[in-house]
Simulated scan of single mutants.
Amino acid sequence: MAQPYVLVLYYSRHGKTEAMARHIARGVERISGMEARLRTVPAVSADCEASAATIPDSGALYCSSDDLKHCAGLILGSPVRFGNMAAPLKYFLDSTSPLWLTGALIDKPAGVFTSSSSLHGGQETTLMSMALPLLHHGMVFAGIPYSEAGLLQTQSGGTPYGASHWSGNNNQNALSEAETNLCQAQGERVARLAEALTSLNDGVPK
């Protein structure tokens, strides 16, 4: 039997969302027997066509439909784009109707994360924009509970809707300790839920 995995799927332009994804993956792998699978999506051009390349030059591989179909859980990340998710991630999600038709993602846990250059630049609306298609897929949405001290201590990113990071002007801010801890806590929580729901749903036909 293949090892269950949480898919950490993100788009990153300047590296901060990718850095968050790697901390989230570390949190996922705190749960014994659960793998973190890092994947990204290609950029889109002005005429909204995805890049023809199938393998990126560096970093995570591009996500396939099968990566998404067979995950035990999903954590989705994007930088803020005018209070919304970035176009490449939206383009990918718009291609997932076949999985919606078959109910492939129903009852799997999901979370979201984001980064922005301005402190009040639309982090929470971006997180909610990513949550909407996951709810349409029937996924079980998991935020970050206030039992995580970082939510009360952070002076930058961090929300109950999902992890976030304030990168600052010119992208100069490193992830703070609170932001890093919240990323790892989110990964661990989704992985723990994935483990529980996978066990609960074993043997139940989809």
Rank of each mutant, 00 (worst) to 15 (best):
P4E: 02
S12T: 09
G15P: 02
E18L: 10
A19N: 06
M20V: 06
A21V: 02
I24C: 04
A25L: 00
E29D: 07
E35C: 02
R39D: 00
T40G: 01
S45Y: 11
C48F: 14
C48L: 15
E49G: 14
S51R: 04
S51H: 08
T54C: 08
P56G: 05
L61W: 10
Y62T: 08
H70G: 13
A72C: 02
A72Q: 02
G77L: 00
S78L: 09
P79L: 03
P79K: 03
V80Y: 09
A86R: 04
P88S: 01
L89N: 05
Y91D: 14
D94Q: 06
T96L: 14
S97E: 14
W100Y: 10
T102D: 10
T102S: 13
D107H: 09
G111T: 01
T114R: 04
S115E: 08
S116C: 13
G122P: 09
G122D: 05
Q123E: 14
E124N: 12
T126C: 12
L127N: 03
L127A: 01
S129L: 10
L132Y: 13
L134P: 00
L135R: 15
H136Y: 12
H137N: 14
G138A: 08
V140K: 04
V140P: 05
F141P: 04
A142D: 09
G143I: 07
I144W: 06
A149F: 10
L152T: 14
G162V: 06
A163Y: 05
H165Q: 11
G168D: 01
G168N: 06
N169Q: 11
N169V: 15
N170A: 14
Q172D: 14
N173K: 13
A174C: 13
S176I: 07
L182Y: 04
L182V: 08
Q184C: 08
E188K: 03
R189T: 13
L193W: 04
E195H: 12
G203L: 06
V204D: 10
K206Y: 13
